[in-house]
C-alpha cells in the first residue's frame, strides 16, 4: 500500500470510485475529484462547521477527516438534492424564509447539522438547538434567524404530523 489509495463509496446516492492521496482530507476529495464545493474548509480545526458532510448518516468535519474515512461509506453532501419538486427540503426552505444566512459560507454546514438535529430530536427547545449547533460558526451572526428557522421546521413537521 502506497501513499495513494482507491476509494469506493456512495456519494449522494451514486456509487463512485476514485483514487486519492492518503493525506487528502474529505473536503479536498470532494472538491478535487467531484467538483463539490458546498463543504469548504474555513477554520481548518473542526470548529466552524463549514466543512460538514454526512458519512454513514453521521455529521463529521470534512477538514479533519482523512479521505480514507469514506472508503465503503455512504457520503451525503449539501449538494444532494432533496426529494421534493423544487429540490429543497423543509430545512432549506425555512432557512430562506427566516433569512437565516447572510454571506452563505457557513450555511451548508448549518443546514446539514439542522437536519441531523431534527432527526435525533424532532421537537428541540432553544437550548437543544443551541447545543447541537454550537459547533457551527456564523461570522455574519445570523444566529437568531437560524434558531427561528429550526423552530419553524419543527413546528411545521409537528403540524403535519
Amino acid at each position: 500500500m502506497g501513499t495513494t489509495r482507491t476509494l469506493r463509496f456512495t456519494l449522494n446516492g451514486e456509487p463512485v470510485t476514485t483514487e486519492a492521496p492518503s493525506h487528502w482530507n474529505v473536503v479536498e476529495l470532494l472538491q478535487n475529484r467531484f467538483n463539490l464545493y458546498g463543504a469548504r474548509e474555513s477554520c481548518g480545526q473542526g470548529l466552524c462547521g463549514c466543512c460538514t458532510v454526512l458519512v454513514d448518516g453521521v455529521a463529521v468535519s470534512g477538514c479533519l477527516s482523512l479521505a480514507a474515512r469514506v472508503d465503503g461509506a455512504d457520503v451525503r453532501t449539501i449538494e444532494a438534492p432533496a426529494a421534493t419538486e423544487d429540490g429543497l427540503d423543509d430545512v432549506q426552505q425555512a432557512f430562506i424564509e427566516s433569512g437565516a444566512f447572510q454571506c452563505g459560507y457557513c450555511t451548508p454546514g448549518f443546514v446539514l447539522m439542522t437536519r441531523k438535529l431534527l432527526d435525533e430530536c424532532p421537537q428541540p427547545d432553544d437550548e437543544d438547538i443551541r447545543h447541537y449547533l454550537s459547533g457551527n460558526l456564523c461570522r455574519c451572526a445570523a444566529y437568531p434567524e437560524i434558531v427561528a428557522a429550526v423552530r419553524l421546521v419543527a413546528q411545521r413537521r409537528a403540524t403535519r404530523g
Binding site: Q31, E79, Y105, T107, P108
Partner: peptide, 21 residues
C-alpha cells in the same frame, strides 16, 4: 423580500472565488 440568492446559498452552490479552479 427574500434574498435573491437564497436558493444558491442553501444548496451550497453559490459561487465564491474559493470554488474557482
Amino acid at each position: 423580500i427574500r434574498r435573491l440568492e437564497g436558493r444558491a446559498k442553501v444548496t451550497g452552490r453559490a459561487q465564491y472565488v474559493h470554488t474557482l479552479r
